[in-house]
Amino acid sequence: MQIRDQRALVSGAIFLVIAVVVFMMSLEYEAGTSARMGPGYFPRILSVGLGVLGLVIMAGAVKRTAPVERLEPWTLAPLLWIAGSVAVFAFLLPRLGLVISLAVLLIGSSLASHEFTWRGTIVSTVVLIVTALGAFVYGIGLQFPVWPTIF
């Protein structure tokens, strides 16, 4: 047996794993009867469905007639910069206010680009922060902590 479609095989396997995990977790919740279903009834139906689909997709991936497809390599650095700067923004916002956290978000995410330059980034960061303050905080009055709250 030869694995022709790596992509479909992995996708199917992930579906299967998720289905098993959700099924195990849903065992904690009561299934109830068909007239009075408990919170566990529907999750079980869904996980059985997803599990079956996962198996069928995996079977299709190893079939002789399956198309040949490889997995794409992951680019970790940009992923960490982007996801990380969002998380850091979330952490800083209530502590240091909108201005500082936006600066961190904008500079942090810009670092993910291959074409990063300090000059361009700083100019665009300043412009964007001023726009955001003008439009959201002073324009339509969204509730944001703007400056650090040190009391």
Binding site: S85, F89, L102, S109, F116, G120, S124, A132
Partner: peptide
């Protein structure tokens, strides 16, 4: 707009 300036702006608006 060059993408390296566009995407941080997209991220800012998304976050807000």
């Amino acid at each position: 707009i060059p993408y390296r300036f566009l995407y941080p702006a997209i991220m800012m608006f998304c976050c807000i």
